[in-house]
Design a protein around this nucleic acid. Structure first.
Lengths: 242, 242
DNA sequence: AAGTGGTCTAGACCACGTA
DNA sequence: ACGTGGTCTAGACCACTTG
């Protein structure tokens, strides 16, 4: 199982990759506990330190979460992760507030050229397109257009039998078994269209911050395209460079 | 020297903090080699593993750099770090090119309210204000206003005896002994002023991406305020969320 | 050949959470 | 009391770089 030859990669990396695949395949589900370090070490015939090093890397990349005295768990999407990890808008005092969400549209449509390119789909594949308006402290602040491959999110069209929650990544995980692990964002300044302007209650042409996010699973498959247009009168996008 | 009592923090953290302070105080200069893990372990009376863990954390936070077979070094600012770590503008194919830089002004002035607040200075303290235009692939793309506390960068005014280089952080480090370690950025969409428009060769009112960066030293003292206004017609700000 | 960091082991004890 | 992760040790061997 584990190769220990000369040209092979190190033990802990093999173990790390094996653990990743257990999570990736859904063998270990988000929120569940994984075997203890000692147990894994015994099963794999290596020392605890080696398993430990493998797990440490996965904790650093947010795949696993350690809780002292309790065990190691597969990371889950929750409101904290949404807020502190995937949401980068703060008010001008530096405070983060998760916006509420107001769905304007939710339709199944053929993918545009841009959508199919960003999501690695064949041209014209069916996608689900959600448009929503988000308020922060009761003020309309963002217009979002979210595009999902229809085959992965089959019943997520209007009348899917439930209301769309505010934090979508939790939904993707719990209902569709799709865990967002990372994302690439491109930011630009654009002028508000008439449509944007109407929804955000400002004048057409007002500069807006456009955030184009492609969200990826653990194996780096793109599964969501999200274009957010934000008024930056009272808010800004915050990034820390370490 | 190292406390090993009950309520005290762990050994490796004490060692890590001690190494940080050696770098912070300039006892170990950027680019220089630090003692080997075995030597440090002997001197401190701990095992190599403990020193190793301390160093590992500092490598992860970009304070130190390991080179197998050679040793461990204090991290330095170079063009790679500027480009891959501190510069987030890419063209729309995802390629990064470091812009060149054209200094328009460099003056010593009293700090504005915003400047003194962001740099934690007394109101009206002397600052050095640099304005420059930056081109990417020969196209004017950004206007930058850089503000530095005058006391830290005493002779950096026009006629300081040398041309301002393109990568300023290298200059700060080599000439003033100030190493930028991290930065906080706030991004907004704004309308180009007449001044911006003239420099960037576009129309006033065009949406621009404004990046307001506060750069910090290792001990989190703010030492540079940089406001960049970027045309996002051919470029964007890129961020990866892990 | 000597010195550096990189991997791995086997075992000890501590701090924390649960039952 | 027990099991978990967290720290620390002492020593082995490997991979890489330099003299």
């Amino acid at each position: 199982m584990l190769s220990t030859g000369k040209g092979s990669i190190s033990l802990y990396m093999q173990i790390r990759d094996m653990l990743v695949s257990k999570v990736g395949k859904g063998e270990w589900l988000p929120g569940s506990i994984i075997p203890s370090e000692v147990n894994l070490a015994q099963e794999l015939g290596v020392s605890q330190g080696t398993v430990r090093k493998a797990i440490t890397e996965l904790v650093e990349s947010n795949v696993l979460t350690r809780r002292q005295g309790r065990g190691t768990f597969v990371s889950m999407h929750n409101i904290d992760r949404a807020l502190f990890h995937f949401f980068h808008i703060s008010d001008n005092k530096g405070h983060k507030v998760l916006p509420d969400s107001n769905v304007l549209q939710c339709r199944r449509k053929p993918a545009t050229r841009i959508e199919s390119s960003k999501l690695h789909l064949e041209a014209g594949t069916s996608v689900i397109r959600i448009e929503r308006m988000r308020r922060i402290s009761d003020k309309p602040t963002m217009v979002e257009t979210i595009t999902l491959p229809a085959d992965l999110f089959a019943d997520l069209v209007e009348g899917g039998g439930y209301e769309l929650p505010n934090t979508l990544y939790e939904l993707y995980e719990q209902r569709y078994g799709i865990t967002i692990h990372s994302a690439d964002e491109q930011l630009r300044a654009i002028a508000a269209s008439k449509h944007d302007a109407k929804i955000l209650n400002l004048e057409a042409g007002t500069p807006l911050l456009e955030i184009e996010r492609v969200a990826l699973t653990l194996d780096r498959t793109p599964v969501e395209l999200r274009v957010s247009r934000c008024s930056t009168r009272n808010h800004h996008y915050h990034n820390t460079i370490f």
